[in-house]
Structure formats: structure tokens, C-alpha cells
Design a protein around this nucleic acid. Structure first.
Lengths: 202, 202
DNA sequence: TCTTGATTTGACCATTCGGTCAAACTCACG
DNA sequence: CGTGAGTTTGACCGAATGGTCAAATCAAGA
């Protein structure tokens, strides 16, 4: 394996290619369904060469997940307690919808992991994610106490946003099977916006 | 393999045990992640004995999916065009939530399949499912035309119901990691009901 | 250029997996 | 009981898979 000194150009390029390929393969087939050969082929490397950069299939998956968790939670981080409540929530929702549209592989990577019981990220859920959500629900609750948005169960409000937005990435095949040629997001954006305006307007 | 005459008691019992075990294993690990040995062990049979009842792993999966698709879509079938619109929709939603609570394995079985592109049920999506959804959106649209419920995009209304209700089964680990000991459905039922009342009240 | 560490690979290995088969066992019924 | 169909299994097979290793190749600095 490469020394843990400053990474060479080749190391940077190959590590990036591997993670990109792994994102394709893991998100499409799940951890167990993905093969090292498949990832190596997609990254343009031989299998032993790939295993020169990451010690195991599991290590690739872990690196991918932990690297993307930050990206994945970024929109919720930006929910600003000092902003205008309804607009803050709506712009969070819009960003989540954009992520479903622009980063569907990332969404499906997490969906695969979660639906199978999150064996590899259970830890992060009950620590990092819970902490972040608790922090933001505090803000939501304050807004409700001040009558700036309608009072609803704050945790379920967040769950509903996740469910509604990620549905378009995770279950894309189903959505497209029903909508046909219509672009899902053309209808989804105004639908979801209307929904949350009606729900949250006091 | 057993003759296709009237199934014996043993055949009935073993076939049922296999499908039950397969539901456990496939819903927890996905198609690729499940092994025939695992299913056989859970059904209390040896592997060759299991393969005496079903010709292959794929055949078990197919039998399971097609058998459950009917169950899965039953609640939407019962949406009655002659009923009271909002109550019809709300009782559909309640039934879907009950299914997430009582049949989470079935939900995750389909979720696993869908998130990986539905390679084995794509056909059923664009025929049976689309037909059913088209039929019901016609009813929804008529209700909107008559001003009995608010006008929203009918397809996205259905997607939102699926997303919100199935989320509690499919991403159960995540929900529980955040809610802790609180029973998810205690909060989900009133939350979702409020949401759709506000959305759909004209 | 030469050397040394970084990179790449063909060959190989152990294990797992889906599936087969012939032989053995069991059950229902005449 | 006896017998034939229905049921069960141990042993086995070929392919796929994750991973290893020694040897070969490459690249950059002295």
C-alpha cells in the first residue's frame, strides 16, 4: 500500500477514480451485490492494483460513505435559526430536491445501506446524525413556540422532508414508470413547495 | 420437483416455510446479498431439499414478489370513487401506515428491488402498477375538478403518500436512531393526517 | 544516468455460492 | 404389509469472488 506521506499525483488520481467507480457500483447493486472486479474495471485498474490503494472492498465502502455523509448532511447544517422560518425550511427542501436530481447515486448509496439495517453506518446515525437533527429540531420548536410556523411534530417534519425528496432519487424507476416522459422534478418542485406552505403556514 | 398435481400437505407446509424464510432474508439483504443456504436454514430445510421445491434462487424471489405485489397494492385498489373524497384518501393513508408498521419486511423487499433499478419487476411497474395508478388519479382529478379536494398534481400526491408512509418501514433504523424509544407510529399517524388534511382541504 | 521507492500485473489461492445427482428414506394407500 | 410416488440428503461440481504475492515496470530526484 502507498505510504501515508503526501499523496502523489498518481495516488490522488487513482483514489478518486476508485471512489467514483465505487459510487457507481455500490449505489446500483448494494454492498454485497458489488464486486471488486467490477469497481476495478470501471475505475480502469486491475484488481490487484485497486487493492494496492484500498486494503479491502469494505474499506472502499467505508471511505465512500464517510466521505459522503458530510456532503449529504450539508443542507440541513445550513438551516439558519436566524433566517425567516418558512423560507429557511423551503430552501432546505429545495436543496434536498436538487440533490435528489443531481446526486441520485449518493442518495441510493445511503438508501441501500439504510434499507438493509445500516450495518456499516449505524454508529454515525445515532451520534452525528442524531445530534444534528436534535439541534435543528430545537430551532424548529422555537419557531413553533413563537408562532412563526404551525405546530407539528418536529422530528416527523424532518422525516417527511427526507422521505418526499429522496423518494425521487431512490425510487426513480418507479416514478418514471408511472410518469412516462414527464420530468419528475417539474411537478415535484411546485407540489412539495405547496405542501409545506400549507402545512406550515400558521 | 413436485408434480403439478394437487399439492400435498408437506408441499404446502414447505413452500410456505420457504417463502416466509425468503421474505426474511431477501428483505434484509437484497437479492444478491441473500444466499440459498441462509434461506434453507431459516426454513429448516437442507439446500437440496429447498431446491426440490423451487428450481432456483431467482424462482423463489420471483414467486415472492409476484405473490406480494397484489397484497402490496390492495389498499390503493380499495380507494372508492363514490366515497367521501378526503376520507377515502385519509383511510388509504392510514392503511399504508399500518402496512409499514405491520409488514415492514414486505416494504423493504420492494424497496430493495426498486432502489437497485427493479431489474426483476420493471415489467409489472409499467403495466399493472401504472394502470392502477392511472385509474386512481382519474378519480382524484375528478374530485379536484368538482372542488371536493384542493387541486394538486395527482401523481405527485400518490408519490408523496408512498414516500411518507413507506419511509417508516424502509428506513426504520434511521427513524429509530433519531427518535430513540418513542414509537415512530405514535407521532407519524397524527402528523401525516394533519399534513394531508391541510394539503387537500379545498 | 542510476537508483530507489512507487506502481502495476499475471498467476494463484481459499472460500463461498448456486446448483446437481444418485441414493436413501418416508408416507399414503391398496 | 408392500409398493410406488413423494421427500430428503450427503457428496460433489464449476464458477465467481475477495484477496495475496512475487516479480516486473515506471518515475523522479540525486
Amino acid at each position: 500500500m502507498p505510504k501515508d506521506r503526501a499523496p502523489t499525483r498518481i495516488q490522488q488520481k487513482n483514489r478518486a477514480a476508485i471512489l467514483e467507480a465505487a459510487l457507481n457500483v455500490f449505489s446500483a447493486h448494494g454492498f454485497r451485490g458489488a464486486t471488486v472486479d467490477q469497481i476495478a474495471a470501471e475505475a480502469g485498474l486491475s484488481k490487484p492494483n485497486l487493492l494496492y490503494y484500498f486494503p479491502s472492498k469494505e474499506a472502499i465502502h467505508t471511505a465512500l460513505l464517510s466521505g459522503l455523509l458530510e456532503v449529504w448532511l450539508a443542507p440541513l447544517h445550513t438551516l439558519d435559526e436566524n433566517g425567516e422560518p418558512l423560507e429557511e425550511i423551503l430552501s432546505y427542501i429545495r436543496r434536498k430536491l436538487e440533490m435528489s436530481r443531481d446526486l441520485p447515486r449518493e442518495s441510493r448509496l445511503f438508501a441501500n445501506e439504510l434499507v438493509q439495517g445500516a450495518p456499516r453506518i449505524h454508529e454515525a446515525l445515532s451520534s452525528d446524525l442524531k445530534k444534528l437533527v436534535d439541534e435543528k429540531t430545537t430551532t424548529l420548536t422555537r419557531w413553533m413556540d413563537q408562532g412563526q410556523i404551525a405546530r407539528v411534530h418536529p422530528y416527523h417534519l424532518i422525516f417527511s422532508i427526507w422521505a418526499l425528496t429522496q423518494h425521487y432519487a431512490d425510487f426513480d424507476v418507479q416514478v418514471r414508470a408511472i410518469l412516462g416522459d414527464e420530468n419528475p422534478f417539474d411537478g415535484a418542485v411546485p407540489f412539495v413547495e405547496t405542501l409545506y406552505r400549507k402545512l406550515l403556514t400558521p
